[in-house]
Design a binder for these strands. Structure first.
Lengths: 346, 346
DNA sequence: GTTAGCACTCGATGGATTAGAGTGCTAACA
DNA sequence: TGTTAGCACTCTAATCCATCGAGTGCTAAC
């Protein structure tokens, strides 16, 4: 079945109404609120189609419709209009940034806290402690003429690998030599310990393979930051209890319990490299405990490098449009703020 | 009215029954469970007396009795028997300690988390970041012949004062000189910055008043640790939602919202100098949001010096006996553990 | 393709009744 | 004088039941 213009309009209207009221949406409501110039009966037919397409659901026969996770996905990907922050909101967000806190970690936590109060959602953030995590072991090996595999074991015993494209074949022997140089020079070090001196040393020892150094260093940073050493924090957990979705204590308890465990948060907050704002809806979450939640998360930079993430968590019935706008704005401001000199970066 | 032996027995029985079941306790229940060899009617008379004494309360006329805050206070102060940890519990607590974590702060947080799972209460802990807080300004002045007042302003603009007993009178002029020496040598420094060298310098400049240096340094430590720079953390907040007391979402939200704010936690967790285990019951809490909660909190040491606190929070109907035993054990173990060399202390 | 009309479904609401736990009081008892 | 049995009374929680109303799906007419 085709998703024509009118269906889109109706779907959008239903989702927005549901986001606002948390009540199943009936045909009459839509007919009245939006002047589509069609009768409730027509809308009922369309709604029936939308349900068949898996975009809507019916809690029980005589209730209205609510969006399915697929419906939300369609909405955020194709229907949602960008929410324009009001002048008032921009002012509030900006004043957030004027906290005069010297330490970056305190600053981010403080911002997260206040931000949760502004948005009335729960805020989750991660903050890598770059200086702590380190690499225990390196292993380099050739895969084919154009690809090299780099395996890294971190001090927390997490194993990660990546493929590096190379312009020329590298034989087993050379790969072994590179491995041993890396292990000798870099193992046990954290990102903070890798300075120009170390890099120059590497360059001297790997003169024939100097072009590999950049991608290797890049991957090291990536690994170390992805480990569980990075700190996670939350703010405004009690906001969750305002949503009628969590009037059921049992559900609330499960979710809050889940959020209590930092390693869970880490997994939930993963943002792919260079991804802008990521939206994970309901059952798209890997964790089953989050199957009725959505997460909107963005990364933020220090000196142009992604070092942490900050995001909102709420019921699937989340004001995505507003959440995305807010978060983009916040991340931008953070980027601007932290790229100034005088912060804690190594 | 006198609190005779039987009344004590009945009060204890009611409190322990209520702690277990969270249901108002009736006269029949007590008569049956404990063989006091008296009829329910007699117990009713006694309960009526206990209510008159303010130790019990009645939610409504035809319900049983529940302990009042005063009742709990009486219980923990005079009636409560020490809970003996079972071998199993001791094993679990000990294995908690075997986490091989180098950084003290991570260790404490991790222990707090697991501990909350063991006890099924919410754990709150504080951890001073001694290295961050500092003193902005000193002011010394004589009060009378035998007392000197020391006022300190921290970098967070908190003002605190103390009186120091001295064996001889000190005049205004001398006091001013001491003030200016302190400001010159110590202001802007944090505890971590005050080393032997600085102290020697002070001793040289205050030769006539060398005996003041120790108490002054002591108070500096006390102030800096009491400021909001010390870190607070919580674990197992979701445990609160298991208590029937928090079946009311509104109440749960208020409490969890309160716990979300770190500065609230600081105030709630204050332990007086050298106090062992402190129990704060219901309305004894200064914060109105905690009027239905109790807090059991203990301090812990590093190298014999109190540096942080760890405690449990739950409804006033808390198993005080067990909470105290658990906490004492934990604090003892922590003290033992951290007094070994090799931790992060400055 | 759209719409009006209508029967039907199903949860929510509110009132009435009932069951049960517990009290307080009185009078009898040791 | 303290203790106890008995009984009337109170209050909450649970249950039942009728009703309401929002909303659907289907049919037939436009």
């Amino acid at each position: 079945m085709e998703l024509d213009e009118r269906k889109k309009l109706i779907l959008g209207a239903i989702i927005e109404s549901y986001i606002e009221t948390a009540e199943p949406v009936g045909s009459r409501t839509i007919a009245k609120k939006h002047d589509l110039n069609v009768s409730p009966a027509t809308i009922r037919n369309e709604m029936s189609d939308l349900e068949e397409m898996g975009l809507l659901e019916q809690p029980h026969t005589s209730a209205g419709r609510i969006p399915s996770h697929l419906g939300y996905r369609m909405y955020v990907d194709r229907l949602m209009k960008r929410y324009e922050l009001t002048a008032n909101e921009i002012t509030r967000m900006c004043s957030l940034m004027e906290l005069k806190i010297a330490e970056l970690d305190t600053l981010i936590k403080e911002i997260a806290n206040i931000y949760s109060r502004i948005t009335n959602y729960t805020v989750i953030g991660t903050m890598p402690e770059v200086s702590k995590a380190s690499i225990k072991h390196f292993q380099v090996m050739p895969i084919d003429d154009k690809t090299l595999m780099l395996i890294i074991v971190t001090n927390t015993n997490i194993v990660r690998d990546t493929k590096i494209s190379i312009g020329r074949p590298i034989d087993l022997h050379t790969a072994a030599r590179i491995s041993s140089v890396l292990n000798e020079r870099l193992s046990g070090l954290s990102c903070g310990d890798i300075d120009m001196e170390k890099i120059t040393l590497l360059q001297a020892e790997l003169t024939d393979n100097e072009d590999l150094i950049q991608p290797i260093l890049h991957f090291i940073y990536e690994c170390v930051e992805a480990t569980e050493n990075s700190e996670v924090f939350t703010g405004g957990i009690s906001n969750l209890l305002s949503f009628p979705e969590y009037n059921n204590i049992q559900r609330a308890k499960e979710l809050i319990g889940f959020l209590d465990d930092k390693s869970n948060l880490h997994r939930a907050m993963a943002v792919r490299e260079h991804e802008h704002v990521r939206i994970v809806i309901g059952s798209e979450n890997r964790a089953i405990e989050l199957k009725d939640c959505s997460i909107v998360v963005s990364s933020y930079n220090i000196d142009g490098k992604v070092v942490g993430t900050i995001g909102l968590i709420g019921p699937t019935r989340m004001n995505y449009s507003k959440a995305v706008s807010n978060l983009e704005f916040l991340a931008n401001q953070l980027n601007r703020l932290t790229s100034k000199p005088g912060n804690k970066q190594e």
